[in-house]
């Protein structure tokens, strides 16, 4: 994307969310079907803010969706009432999802960023 300088911007500068007209309102189109423009922050990456990352364990999840509602960064992917996973491009690693997870042991846990997800799943703690 070509960035304009601060003095090249037009008055009333507009940032477009989508590249083309959408037939429906965005509330009726799931993110994977949206024609995102390069100027949408969906295309940006904040994964490098993380020190710890949440790892998701499908076997323990009860699909309560607490993590979905309380995620500040829209990084919990839920489709058809099921939790699918974590969007690591937009997750800043705040850890709220882990705190609100009600299962025992938790189905989301924070691990060091460099740890492999499969390895993390193998090290999952037992029920207390």
């Amino acid at each position: 994307m070509k960035y304009l300088g601060w003095d090249e911007l037009l008055p009333g500068a507009i940032l477009f969310s989508f590249d083309e007209e959408m037939e429906k309102d965005a509330s009726e189109v799931l993110p994977e079907n949206r024609p995102y423009a390069e100027t949408n922050s969906y295309k940006a990456y904040v994964g490098d803010w993380r020190v710890l990352k949440p790892v998701y364990n499908r076997d323990l999840c009860i699909d309560c969706q607490f993590c979905w509602i309380y995620c500040p960064d829209v990084s919990i992917i839920s489709r058809d009432k099921k939790m699918i996973g974590v969007d690591y491009d937009h997750c800043k690693g705040c850890g709220i999802c882990v705190e609100v997870c009600p299962t025992n042991p938790k189905s989301l846990l924070m691990f060091e960023e460099q740890v492999d997800n499969d390895k993390a799943l193998a090290e999952w703690p037992e029920k207390e």
Binding site: V29, N40, S41, K43, Q65, P72, K81, K92, I96
Partner: peptide, 26 residues
């Protein structure tokens, strides 16, 4: 319920620059 609510398609995108854990975006 929350399961039904979670089928919503968000109109607010991630990769905004709010602090991690900010309640504003919630």
């Amino acid at each position: 319920n929350l399961k039904e609510f979670s089928t919503s398609a968000d109109r607010f995108e991630g990769a905004n620059l709010l602090c991690p854990g900010c309640a504003h975006s919630i």
